[in-house]
Design a protein around this nucleic acid. Sequence first.
DNA 1: GATGAATGAGTTTTCATTCAT
DNA 2: AATGAATGAAAACTCATTCAT
Lengths: 200, 200, 200, 200
Amino acid sequence: MTRDGGKRERILAAALEIFATQGFSNTTVQEIAERAGVGKGTFYTYFPTKEDVFTDLLNDGLIHMGQHIENKIQTLKGSVVKLRAILREQLRYFHDHQPLCRLIAREAWGHNDQPSALAQRIRTSYIKMLQEVIDKGIKEGELRTLDSETAATALYGMVSLVALYTKDLSSDEALRNVEMTLQELFFSGITQRQPIMGEA
Amino acid sequence: MTRDGGKRERILAAALEIFATQGFSNTTVQEIAERAGVGKGTFYTYFPTKEDVFTDLLNDGLIHMGQHIENKIQTLKGSVVKLRAILREQLRYFHDHQPLCRLIAREAWGHNDQPSALAQRIRTSYIKMLQEVIDKGIKEGELRTLDSETAATALYGMVSLVALYTKDLSSDEALRNVEMTLQELFFSGITQRQPIMGEA
Amino acid sequence: MTRDGGKRERILAAALEIFATQGFSNTTVQEIAERAGVGKGTFYTYFPTKEDVFTDLLNDGLIHMGQHIENKIQTLKGSVVKLRAILREQLRYFHDHQPLCRLIAREAWGHNDQPSALAQRIRTSYIKMLQEVIDKGIKEGELRTLDSETAATALYGMVSLVALYTKDLSSDEALRNVEMTLQELFFSGITQRQPIMGEA
Amino acid sequence: MTRDGGKRERILAAALEIFATQGFSNTTVQEIAERAGVGKGTFYTYFPTKEDVFTDLLNDGLIHMGQHIENKIQTLKGSVVKLRAILREQLRYFHDHQPLCRLIAREAWGHNDQPSALAQRIRTSYIKMLQEVIDKGIKEGELRTLDSETAATALYGMVSLVALYTKDLSSDEALRNVEMTLQELFFSGITQRQPIMGEA
DNA sequence: GATGAATGAGTTTTCATTCAT
DNA sequence: AATGAATGAAAACTCATTCAT
């Protein structure tokens, strides 16, 4: 599958790690080439410009994340079930692919003059998907009637910030705990269920 | 407004706008000076380095946002009431200070190798505050028992992403609609209230 | 004598000290003004450019040194007597006016593109004087017949390098010792007087 | 001569010439690169900073001059013979390597705030050597008893100033004449040998 | 195909000099 | 007359990109 000894992949992997840590501008092609174990010239055999690796990384990443999650929910039935799976998988995905996701996140805030270009794609390609699930749930009565775009964005924001801010998410247990909290929060809200009727 | 005809302020304002659009590295001192309507040298009369304007901007911004919101909730009683106010005010603040908040958000993901320095401060200075309110609410039975740190981060993530992603938030009505959605979502969850009582 | 409260003199003195320590290029007008206790703008009331203070300093210095030494020898009779006095006074002058002399010396090697300009003046204004004394001494038979220009330059080089290189020349005793050595050297040479006559 | 077509050497040579003429501060990297016939960036492929070429030049120069002269005198016997050779070789070396020596000389007066660093080395590495020869000569009775450090410095000062000040030293004859004068001066003094006994 | 030496456009920063107060 | 805020020209240095080997 990889002619050329996987050089392209090695470069992408190296770039990902360094971009994620240092950002686009503070990363030199030299560094990437070194970490990938190739000459600087070789970098340009595989990518026309530094910007291109970045874009490729982002595109591939977004596609991969989208597909990964769509795969997971494809066979599931019911909006709540689907959304629960999305929440879980997205959290896990962010956690398992921290560097990539950090890149996506930062890019989402616009790393340069055409911030929309890709941030746009996040909204359209990924958040749109969430939105559709939510819309369906509303129509079918499983979900409360609310603005689905806002809800989808909120879900995405919740999970991504938690995934990237929470210091210790390395143990499986910690991850599960955080997930449970988010599930509760997103599906039932933070408020203590009011003692409906005379239950007290 | 002060001596020097507010040059310092003009530079800060110009820097804020450009940094927010283009990021730190893609912004040149030249651009800032031009937009501020001063000479390049003048920039250096007021700030030792380019990095310093950036830091000043961020520090002041974080302090300002924190104080603004703390002021708003200080006199309120009850965790739910407080959290509702926080949600509303934060949304509004992000909306009213888009450039600044975009800066804060992006910085949170680390604009360079020492991302923690300021990201840390957001967590400690701002999210900690949310966490305390939630903790109190849990203790007093107003809120469901859940991991308060995760909940606080989730609230912050929800609001900030929605504020920055939502294209049209300019009309007061749009803003109110989005707010309402988030309030419902955060406090009551997305799920349609289960047919309470013995309807099954 | 000094209208304006001696500001000009204060600037010259300040400039001399800093130029001597840091060189022309590494000295800023700001520094000079500060050390002189005046505003930066005031500097330009008294001197058209930074270069001008430097030149003035050098010119005045050369003139002053020349006059000082000429005064000392004017009344003396005999070339050897005169040269001995010159050697003594020059050594002392270098020692007493280290900063100025350091400036002159460095300039002599050319501090910029027109190195000759001033180096020339040293040769013409000062070394010429030595040369004349030597020439007279030769003609009158007091001095050995040799190339007077070379001898004059050598005398100047001897004294100036010793004055500026010798670490401890602060005590009067040390100064006298060094002078004695130079006198012996210049007038009688380093060689042990050959066993005159048939002593062997 | 080495790989890279001697670029490093070309840069060093160019730098030497320009530094010697214009001084360190008045020389731009651009100029050096141009004169060396390379791009500005290439300069930085070979030297980390402008300061580094300067230092390399000086270090190499001092070492070279020292070795050159030590080689010349190593096999000679007798202090007077050695000193005569030193005087001759130093004069010739200064003359043959004017730019380098101009650099060394100027540095001796301190080209910036840390003049000692290298000026020190001149004293220690080179003048010390002269001093040792003189000391030996004194001990063995060939030379007059005098302060050897002062004498060594004087010799150095004499020769270097004459070498750098004397306008026309290009013909071999001129050089020999100047040398003879200095030899006479340094070894026998300027004074006409007193009519010892009744010779007149 | 792989490489790294060569390059110059572009960026930050300094500082002599001007000029309004 | 004295000042220092304002300025932009100039200089060191970086790094994406090219290209000869």
